[in-house]
């Protein structure tokens, strides 16, 4: 597991639901075919209303027209990030678009679980609200050991909550590797 994650921030608000993360009409592409799967990157976060797309100003495309990956690699969210559907296409599309970490005030249960069990990226919970202090495009540094997120653009630091009991699955890579390590399924 990496010790630090550095990248550009893309900031969203509260209750970002899975229909905003990946609208239902796009759930038809294969998640295994390498070429077809790229479409998930292309349409990641395409359901977010314009005014909320990349706060504080909005109107920032997460993925530029014609591209399959985003220039932003760290997502910042408010409360209840990933609410709604159990579609694993939601964390998958963010990973395919290049997201390495999602840091939110709180997560909806299934999205959080899918992110961890599928090994897409680490879902961090912040101790305080960050969406007022981080702007889309700011450079962020997450230090996993210190459990902090630093906004290198503004200099401000935030404490992250400990990953707790899911750390073992995160360190193993996903639920399958964790089960192999602990002898629940054959290696």
């Amino acid at each position: 597991m990496k010790k630090t994650i550095e990248g550009k921030a893309y900031v969203l608000g509260n209750d970002v639901d899975t229909d905003q993360i990946i609208p239902a009409e796009h759930l038809v592409y294969s998640l295994t075919d390498p070429e077809e799967k790229k479409n998930y990157g292309k349409f990641a976060l395409s359901g977010v209303p314009q005014e909320a797309a990349g706060l504080p100003d909005g109107n920032h495309a997460f993925v530029d027209e014609g591209k399959f990956e985003s220039e932003y690699t760290i997502l910042i969210g408010g409360k209840n990030f990933g609410c709604g559907s159990s579609r694993e296409h939601a964390p998958a599309c963010l990973k395919i678009a290049g997201i390495q970490a999602v840091v939110a005030e709180s997560f909806a249960r299934i999205f959080y679980r899918n992110s961890v069990d599928g090994g897409f990226f680490i879902p961090f919970e912040s101790k305080v609200r960050m969406t007022d202090d981080i702007k889309t495009g700011d450079t962020l540094l997450i230090d996993l050991g210190a459990e902090t997120l630093t906004n290198k653009t503004s200099g401000k630091s935030f404490s992250l909550k400990s990953l707790g009991e899911v750390i073992d699955i995160i360190e193993a890579g996903n639920i399958f590797e964790y089960a192999r390590k602990t002898g629940l399924i054959a290696k």
Binding site: L31, S85, S86, R87, E88, P91, I110, R113, N114, D117, G118, E165, N174, I175, F176, A179, L184, I185
Partner: peptide
């Protein structure tokens, strides 16, 4: 409700972790 990964895990093992 669960995601694809957890469902695939169940398909192979018949088990899942729950909090």
């Amino acid at each position: 409700g669960i995601g694809n990964t957890d469902a695939a895990f169940i398909l192979g093992t018949g088990k899942l972790w729950v909090k």
